[in-house]
């Protein structure tokens, strides 16, 4: 997947506005055609339009005060007064019961007891598909003065391959392509693996140098996971490689 947006806590507002982005143009079109257009471009001169509206409502309110005839509308309070109050209390109690109950019940078991979680989360750029090289003097001379960078680098990066073993058994293996239209961004992993609490040996290996690169980063460590613990396998970009947290 290519990267269109980089979301951080500071600009995360866009996440919740995503539905608006999806529906926004349609919504605005509807809004414009059936409401706003009349506000901005009333079908006739605005003052005249408003005068007519005002005149109509005054005229109508005057007429509404007229009375004639003796027709009386039917009465619906057929049941006993006290029974009605009781009925209202019962119905409202029922609604309250529904609200009170389903606002916190039935409880939901997100993770089974005795289970822990290993979360693999890393974002790391693969090696360049073509390594950077120094430009020759002729090449530099042929470029415009403001474009004379000494190194020539292509943009495309290798996808990253990550494999995770728990007690010698592969629990995750995946490959992530570099983000960006030119595949020049980072490759990211975000995986949750549910594991039984207790002692384990975790091994994680990464290859960021293409099909012939082999294992470029590795961590193997014994861990003791408490029930409900969330162990993060992350990656330092400063060269220190994998870490557990």
């Amino acid at each position: 997947m290519f990267s269109l947006l980089h979301i951080s806590p500071e600009n995360m507002v866009w996440l919740y506005l995503a539905p608006l982005v999806v529906f926004g143009p349609i919504f605005f079109g509807v809004l414009w055609n059936f409401g706003l257009k009349n506000i901005f471009y009333p079908p006739q001169d605005l003052a005249e339009y408003q005068r007519l509206e005002r005149e109509q409502s005054e005229h109508i309110s005057q007429r509404r005060t007229r009375k004639s005839g003796t027709y009386t509308r039917p009465q619906h309070m057929a049941t006993q007064f006290s029974a009605q109050w009781l009925g209202q209390v019962v119905v409202l109690a029922g609604v309250a019961g529904v609200l009170g109950a389903f606002s916190a019940w039935p409880s939901y078991r997100y993770r089974e007891p005795g289970m822990a979680q290993v979360k693999l989360s890393l974002s790391h750029p693969g090696e360049r598909v073509e390594p950077c090289r120094k430009r020759t003097a002729e090449e530099l001379a042929s470029l415009a003065p403001n474009m004379r960078a000494k190194m020539k680098c292509t943009r495309e990066r290798w996808p990253i391959t990550v494999k995770l073993w728990l007690d010698g058994e592969v629990v995750f293996a995946g490959q992530a392509a570099a983000t960006g239209l030119h595949q020049d961004g980072s490759s990211s992993f975000y995986e949750k693996i549910s594991v039984p609490a207790g002692s384990h040996t975790l091994t994680v290996r990464l290859n960021d140098a293409g099909p012939h690169g082999g294992v470029t980063q590795e961590l193997s460590q014994a861990v003791v996971l408490a029930p409900a613990q969330n162990l993060v396998i992350g990656f330092h970009e400063d060269g220190r490689g994998f870490y557990l947290k």
């Binding site: 990267s3 980089h6 979301i7």
Partner: peptide
């Protein structure tokens, strides 16, 4: 559509800042 998973903002203790809660209130 995100270059880096946005869920990593909630990775571990210390990932969040007070500013995040200001943003949440705003939302």
């Amino acid at each position: 559509i995100f270059g880096e998973p946005v869920a990593t903002n909630f990775l571990a203790e210390g990932s969040l800042t007070d500013r995040f809660f200001t943003l949440l209130v705003f939302i």
